[in-house]
Amino acid sequence: MWDEYLFPASLDEALEMLEAHGGEARIIAGGTDLVLQSQRGQCSAKVMVDITRIPGLDYIEERDGLIYIGAQVTHGQVAASPLIRSRAGVLAQGCGSVGGPQIRNVGTLVGNVVNALPAADGAIALFALDAEVEVAERAGRHWTPIATLYAGVGLCTVDPCAAMITQLRFRALGKGEAGAFERLAKRRALVLPILNAAAIVGLKGNKVERARIAIGPVAQTPFVAAEAAEALVGRTPDEDRISRVAQLAAQAAQPRDSLLRGSAEYRKVMAGVLVRRALWRAVEAASLQEGEDANS
């Protein structure tokens, strides 16, 4: 374990602390990943820089059609947020399926991303939402698409010993848009998924205007089935079409045989099932939304 535990009072102070320890210090948020990694010798940092007391990083808010989520926001807060539930339900569902209540009370959504597992429930939903993250370094802050953070299983391109992610953002789902999250696991709670999928659908009239599909863990990083989603755009999302799109997504997915998670073949077929169900639920919710909005 580490030797020192620090609470910076500001973002700048956090970055200074990281710099001062020249790679020996690391950002910690909820610690639900980091504590175990440190105990198991997978994280050698000697100084923890705890960001959970920096003022002003605990928001979930909407500005100009974008939803911003601060680095301190936990899975529990996301899952319970009325804003997220109504304008990005897929993320509420993803975060709501993480671990159990005690884990969701502590683990953060940003930490879920930085931990960079291809199975992470929060991250998969964020991929479907096409989220961006804000990276803060001593040199300044910049926004980058979430996908640029991923370099492999557990490998994040942002080094938590040198930089910090301050917030996330994505476009709030609007009229005629909805998402859904599906998950398959060895039991019904308190367990990482053997497969998960998130889908977003935007409808105009009876045609799909926009679609996005993310699947995990079927590759080294969360997988976006772009071609499959493309095959839905401009089409009527009937059962047939959705099945075919789901098939395409499954074909593109590359799960591996895993002793504990199951065979590649099973999970490949399941990717199709989960994507189909997620798309179907998303379409249903979206058309409901459209109907409602049209009436209002």
Partner: peptide, 19 residues
């Protein structure tokens, strides 16, 4: 190992004491 911290349940086996 659950305990309440400011009213919320957390697993204290995973919770750095200084938090």
């Amino acid at each position: 190992c659950a305990v309440l911290v400011d009213g919320r349940a957390v697993d204290s086996c995973l919770y750095p004491a200084l938090k």
